[in-house]
Design a protein around this nucleic acid. Structure first.
Lengths: 226, 226
DNA sequence: CCATAACGAGAGCGGTGCTCTTGCTTTCGA
DNA sequence: TCGAAAGCAAGAGCACCGCTCTCGTTATGG
């Protein structure tokens, strides 16, 4: 048991080290990282890596899960502590942006174009929801405390669909607020991707933080946060 | 002259055919298209393709430029004709979305994560600005005709930067409106990418058009279009 | 103690981007 | 008009890739 524990521990360490080396390669090579190259960096044969990850896609999946958890954790850390609703929302979204600036290739991995043949397995959907659930939570709390401004409600098929989602994650929150929260999340991703993927070049080159802040304050205003 | 014109014409046709085959491969293989595969499809040696494109990246650049022009043209077609400002804005943005749904991999090519080693050459920036300039034009026209609602102006470094950009492309438009136009464009890209890249899975599965429409009407409202 | 399972290394398969050389054809200028 | 020059296609080849298979070795557990 303790002996087999050694085996298991070594294996876990090996797995972690492969992921660490792969992340380092991600910085320079982007999404098309080479399994052979990480094997070389670790001083082992490329075929040996397959003892730990069945395929390159599986290694990518592990990195994707780590990335989701990393950005989720950064956001949750920023959201903690006492602050107004607006302040918490801004802190959270800015934390996501700063994480993305610090880990651009990992951002691309989770929010950029999907790898062609790659299909995200079920394991990723949990970690993937951390940020949106955090934002939805801020909105839910503000609403529950009666601190969200009045806006005209929305209706239609989209609203019904949102109401169903709300029932599952943030019961009691009206569709219009869920829609605003999702809108903020979408805008958040769009703004960060635009900045990281070079869409802002030659238009917003100096005050990109101000650019982002403007977008997020607009979304906060739509939600009705103060 | 006319003889050499034959040469040039054949060369142009060959170039176009390579691009066409590459686009077909893009549909199935995504961004990692194989130059050898397109060469095989054309019944020629892979080395012969290098007579027309110096590298795979150069072929990708050609596809990127075509994609920018394609989506720009679709948007411009939708924006043409008589309609209210709001209607023109909605038609335009929906046209972009529909183009993206019809050409998901080309969308990923231009608005998704950039290819790691790839640096977009100067040739792409012109075509890349067609959509944002179109949206900015709608906003400018509405403002010039006095049809935009009053909103509080913005200031700060970001506003100054936007004013400089506005001077170049849409002179006379106040920073606050340029900011709103850019915000709409960013939100547009974020919403489409989220839909195409699978971010909406398990939350918005039925009325995705309604989802998009909601986002865009929100942006139109921020601009003040009616 | 020993069968079994995990492990690492190496060879190999088919694929990739890209280069270089070799012939052939078309173009163009003296 | 004719020969040099340029364009073109093909093939071989290089180094790399993901992945599989085999083969010794080592650790594990009944």
């Amino acid at each position: 048991m303790s002996a087999s524990g050694v085996r298991a521990r070594v294996r876990a360490e090996m797995t972690e080290e492969i992921k660490a080396v792969a992340k380092r390669h991600l910085v320079t090579d982007g999404a098309n990282l080479s399994l052979r190259a990480v094997a070389r960096d670790m001083g082992m044969a490329s075929s040996a890596v397959y003892r730990y990850f069945a395929s390159r896609d599986e290694l990518l999946t592990a990195l994707i899960i780590d990335a989701y958890n990393s950005v989720g954790e950064a956001a949750e850390r920023a959201a903690a502590g006492e602050a107004s609703d607006l302040e918490r929302f801004l802190r959270t979204t800015h934390a996501v942006r700063e994480w993305a600036l610090a880990h651009p290739h990992e951002w691309a991995l989770i929010y950029g174009s999907p790898v062609p043949g790659y299909e995200a397995p079920q394991d990723t959907i949990g970690p993937a929801t951390r940020v949106i659930l955090l934002i939805a939570g801020i909105v839910r709390d503000a609403h529950a405390a009666g601190r969200t401004a009045e806006r005209e409600p929305i209706s239609g098929g989209y609203a019904d669909e949102l109401a169903a989602v709300a029932d599952q994650f943030t019961p009691g929150t009206p569709p219009r607020l869920v829609a605003a929260a999702l809108s903020a999340f979408i805008h958040l991703g769009g703004a960060i991707s635009a900045e990281l993927f070079g869409q802002l070049k030659n238009s917003v080159d100096h005050d990109r933080r101000g650019f982002f802040d403007y977008q997020m304050r607009g979304e906060a205003d739509r939600i009705g946060l103060t």
